[in-house]
Design a protein around this nucleic acid. Structure first.
Lengths: 132, 132
DNA sequence: GGGCTAATTGATAATGAATGTCAAAACCGT
DNA sequence: ACGGTTTTGACATTCATTATCAATTAGCCC
């Protein structure tokens, strides 16, 4: 463990929604950390491999990272408006995925599941704006 | 409809698994079509917007396209070995997604679900190789 | 602490998918 | 065929990510 890796980990603790590697790098520099962009990328990837951060591929192909709270396999429900993220587990989908895969003779099933929606706060805000 | 758009559509008919825009462009050129890369990108995107092709984001951030067989919303089960793709629908997951979203006060739920596995043929081939 | 070796860092260059540009070419109703 | 609009495509550009590699640092034995 190096100073830089610890700093990335700390930065992730302060942030609580998905951010790109570059955003994390910017935040760290503004917070006074001296760290190179390449190192941020490397560290985030290492953390992701280790299962310490969640990775989300945005629609335009960027990877966004976020400290994950739980160790087990899980998915996300992300608000389109504010980016608030809720970690969810789904025994239902896990078994569904395996069943569907097995039904077609597939083994070693893995799955990618992400949910997007508008959270109650953002929906209320949108309604207020529309009411003006 | 122009000659180029028709050609892309035909190329997609011949291909039956997910290919990148560049691969499709290459195949077309080798097949004698005269078409620019930019046009392939534009056409694929238009087709995707129209729901005529499925888009899959690979792990390294590339978009892969494939003619889709059914009109309704559906997901994919893709073989890691040979790329064979099976289109699946999942009333189970659809309702699960909405239920989970609603439970957290989210509205307008959308979801991304992809399944990956090893198909029976590829599993058999792997077993044969291991047996040597 | 001093010294040693291997791993890590970071400025910069390179990569590569995807998009913007814009003049030339193709389309279409008349 | 004609004029205006749309589309095309070679090329340049953007931008996230990865490779490079010399300089720095971590880990460790004494």
């Amino acid at each position: 463990m190096t100073r830089q890796r610890a700093a990335v980990s700390e930065a992730l603790d302060r942030l609580d929604d998905f951010r790109s590697a570059q955003q994390i790098h910017d935040v760290m520099r503004q917070g006074g950390d001296t760290i190179g962009l390449a190192t941020v990328y490397r560290t985030l990837q290492a953390l992701a491999d280790h299962g310490d951060v969640d990775v989300l591929r945005t629609e335009d192909g960027e990877s966004h990272y976020r400290r994950c709270e739980r160790d087990e396999h899980h998915h996300h429900l992300v608000c389109r408006g504010c980016g608030r993220t809720i970690e969810i587990d789904g025994p239902t989908v896990e078994s569904w995925a395996n069943t569907v895969g097995a039904a077609h003779g597939f083994t070693g099933i893995e799955h990618t599941i992400e949910l997007f929606g508008t959270c109650a706060d953002c929906a209320a805000a949108a309604a207020a704006r529309a009411g003006d």
